[in-house]
Structures are given as structure tokens and as C-alpha cells.
Simulated assay, not measured.
Amino acid sequence: MREIYDALIIGAGAAGLFCAGSAAQAGLRVALLEHGPEPGRKILISGGGRCNFTNLDVSAKNFLGANPHFCKSALAGFTPYDFLALVGEAGIAWHEKTLGQLFCDDSARRIVEMLLARMNGAELHCGVRVETVTHDGRFRVETGKGVFQAKNLVVATGGLSIPKIGATDFAYRIARQFGHQLVTPRPALVPLSVEAAWIGALAGVAAPVTAQAGKVCFAESLLFTHRGLSGPAVLQISSYLTPGESFMVNFLPGTRLAEILPAAKRARPKAGLKSVLAEHLPARLAAHFAQAHPGNLADLPDQALRRLGDELNGFTFTPSGTEGFAKAEVTAGGVDTRGLNSRDCGSKTVPGLFFAGEALDVTGWLGGYNFQWAWASGHAAAKAIRERC
């Protein structure tokens, strides 16, 4: 039997590592358990190996969940600039890519090393399989490597996305065990499947677009794949779609093609539609949309040109599904936040029980937002534990 810890944290991903470090920095006795062979595996593969560790512009508007206001308190308690200060102290060089997204100049491993250095004597146990969790005034966690006891328990084992690096439903099972409800988990920030032969024929083609579903609109790039659609704009919109729901893509944002094509016909009647479209679209995409209209612009009625222009400014896709948790960057849904305190992500009914990171029904946009939620929620839980101790 080991000592009784102030905080026992299960899951050495972004949220768990940060929570352990924040608690250890406060002088608490901390143990961090990880079922995989090493900590921070999702950090290491993120951002092409350079980790998009936060975003300069973070607010509740960048997150979705059944309660869109839940994340406000934790995000206010630990901001992107707080994390940047730690990055600076660790001497990690970084750069802004686009839309406020911050990446390491070097390797994502530098972020993991920084998080481990912050743990300040906290114990890290990898390759530990949790068998049972019980609570009788304190938490007792039985594992294949012995029993751990603690006054406080933080579950930071993430969601179901990317099972090849060890994602499981552990957090959801613990939540249910202690009386918490779940918002049905589903893949988010995930490529979409579209059952149309012409989509696969354009695999590899990318274009700047706006993607819109209802009132939500993202202006980023779209990528055609052999199975459907991907790229930042599509990943973003995927988090907001329900099964069977369509979304609209504007292939020429800021351009009224229904006006440009008839004007081009009058100015260059002998020009081919494909060549005119290729002035605005990738060549293969232009060829696809022009193939039903052979000949010169002079041969095409203005009405047909306007109709094609309107279609390209508002093309509707109806996905047949997604590529699932295997390709999803995060999990939407999770532990229902109605049962948690927004100040610290702690259980309203089980004192000392906390959830952090992706395990909760808080899902960020693509671009560093989910990492910022991991840092902020882990920090909030650690602060509350310090106050309890």
C-alpha cells in the first residue's frame, strides 16, 4: 500500500500532465497514472509533430457542447498568454502559423518535456492498468501495479478519438459509476465521407473555401480525398453536423461568379469555360465543373452561366457519414457538464472527483483550442484540489 496522495490523476495526456504539474507546483503529493507506455502521445503527434499548443484568440465562442457557457470560467482562469509564459520560461521557440495558431519551431516533444519538468517530484507511473476505482471518503484505485489512494481524483483520460494511440472509454465508465450522465460521444474534427464518384476523382485537390452549416461558417481550405472531403474547413464544420445534415461550400468566397461568367462571355466569347474557371479554381476542379458545358462561352446561355456561378458560390454536400474515431482529432460529447462545477470541473455530487480535458462535453475548434482547454481545465482542477487540501 502506497502513501495517501493529495491528488491522483489518471491519464498522462495534455490535461493530466498539466494538472499534475500545477498540483505539484503547489506542493501537493501527486501521482499520475498512464496506461500507455509513455506520456503525452497525442501531444507528440499533433500539428505534424510540432504541436499546435494554443491559439492567441480563445473564448467560449470557439467551443461547443450542450452547455456552451461551461468553459468560460476555466478559460478565464488560465489563458493562452499564461501558457505562453511557461513556453517562454522553458526556452521553447514558437511561431504563429495562421488564424492565431501557435506551433513549436522544433518538436512537440519539447512541450512534453516542459510538462514533465513542471511535475516537481510528482510520481509518474506508465504502463499502469486501472482495475477498479472505489470511494469511501477517499479514492482507492486498484491497478496491476498496486493500490493507490488519494483524497482527490482527476480523470483525464480523454475521449475515443485516435484509438491506435490508446483512446478508451475509461472516463465515461468512471463517470457513470459515480452517477454522472453522458452526452453521447461522437467523432469531431473528422473527415467526411461523400458517396459520389467525382469526389474521389478529384482526390488531392485543395481549394480555399467557406463551409457553412446553419449560422456557423469557417473560411479555410477544403481537400478532396478518395473517400470524401477533408481539410481544415471540413474538419471544423464536421463538429457541428448531425447525421444526414447537409452543409454548403462556397468555392469562391468574396466573388460573385454568376456575374463574372456572363461578363467574361461578352469580353471573351471565344474563351472556353474551363479556362475561365481555371482563373478562379484549381485546374482539375475547373475541368470537372466545365465538362458538362463544352465549347466556347459564346455557345452558353447567360442563364446557364449564372446557374453554374450560383452553384459554385453555394455548393451543397450531404455526407454519408464520417471517417470515425480512427481519423477524428477529438471527441465531441462526453461527461455531461450539468453534473460538474464550471469553476473547477469538479463533481457536484462526489467531493474530490474531477474531470479534465477531452473527457468532458467541451469540444474546441481546430487550431490549438482543445489544447488550451486541456491546460485550462487541468489548471482549474489543480487549483480546487489545492484549496481542498
Rank of each mutant, 00 (worst) to 15 (best):
K215V: 13
R388Q: 12
P39S: 01
L252W: 11
P232H: 09
T316R: 15
K42M: 08
P68T: 11
K274A: 15
K42I: 13
V209S: 07
L116P: 00
S230F: 11
A31I: 02
S238Q: 11
F224N: 08
L241S: 12
P351V: 12
V155N: 05
T168F: 08
T98R: 15
N52Y: 05
G364C: 07
A267C: 04
F247T: 10
C126K: 02
L99W: 00
N120I: 01
S193A: 14
E38N: 02
L241M: 13
A278S: 15
A122Q: 05
A60F: 04
F218D: 01
N370L: 00
T318I: 08
A287S: 12
Y81V: 03
P208M: 04
Y369V: 10
G204R: 04
V194R: 03
A233F: 03
A76L: 00
R284H: 03
D299M: 14
E96Y: 09
E113W: 05
L102A: 01
F18W: 09
T363R: 12
A374I: 00
G166Y: 02
L32N: 10
C345E: 07
D136H: 09
G352A: 12
A207Q: 11
G49D: 08
G47D: 07
G364V: 09
D302M: 02
G49L: 02
C345I: 06
G214N: 06
V154M: 04
R109S: 11
R386T: 11
L160A: 07
A263C: 02
A66R: 15
G368A: 06
K61W: 04
S193E: 13
I174T: 11
I162V: 13
A359V: 12
G314L: 07
R173A: 09
F251V: 02
G324K: 02
N120F: 00
V190R: 04
G367H: 13
Y5E: 12
L44D: 09
D6L: 01
I237A: 10
P80V: 10
A304G: 02
A150L: 05
Q149Y: 00
L8P: 03
C51S: 04
V87R: 11
P282S: 01
R118W: 00
L115V: 03
L229D: 03
G309Y: 06
N120Y: 06
G65I: 05
G352N: 13
C217V: 14
R338E: 14
A90V: 04
R388F: 01
A356E: 10
T363F: 06
N55Q: 01
T316H: 14
R129Y: 05
G321E: 11
D57C: 15
E220A: 11
A122W: 08
E142I: 05
G179Y: 05
A23R: 04
V362T: 06
R176H: 05
G40S: 07
A298W: 09
V350L: 13
A264K: 10
W375A: 04
A290W: 01
A90L: 09
I92L: 08
V130D: 03
F170V: 00
P37R: 15
G137L: 03
A213L: 10
A258M: 09
G127R: 08
T134S: 15
N55Y: 08
R110Q: 15
F317A: 09
K42H: 06
L222H: 08
L273I: 12
P282Y: 04
E3T: 09
G40D: 12
P232Y: 00
